[in-house]
Amino acid sequence: MDILSHFNYWVVVVLMMLGFFIVIARGNLIKKLIGLNIFQTSVFIFYISTGKVIGGSAPVLSSDIQLYSNPLPHVLILTAIVVGIATTSVGLALVLRIYRAYGSIEQDEILEQSRQ
């Protein structure tokens, strides 16, 4: 049981690092955004895991339920997801503009063009 008590946190770290790896090791800008999405979702998973109480129930009050999971992380993450898609789309819009200006979304080619 001792390993299981931190399993969720370790998975979060692994997911976060996989996203981080995509962001720094891949040159394609859309792939980088996907990596950022993975990173972001790992933070969501972290918050929601912290909010879980074993044996608890979803935080909708009812007279025959005694134990609830923590509603506060749910509120924070609920809004963060929608803000996340809004900011992702700003990123995608920037990528489209970069493509219009440079004709490429590969980091190397863009850097090369802007050095000239």
Partner: peptide, 11 residues
């Protein structure tokens, strides 16, 4: 699974 039904909806 984590009881965050509202979050699951959105995600």
């Amino acid at each position: 699974i984590m009881d965050a039904v509202d979050v699951a909806f959105t995600e």
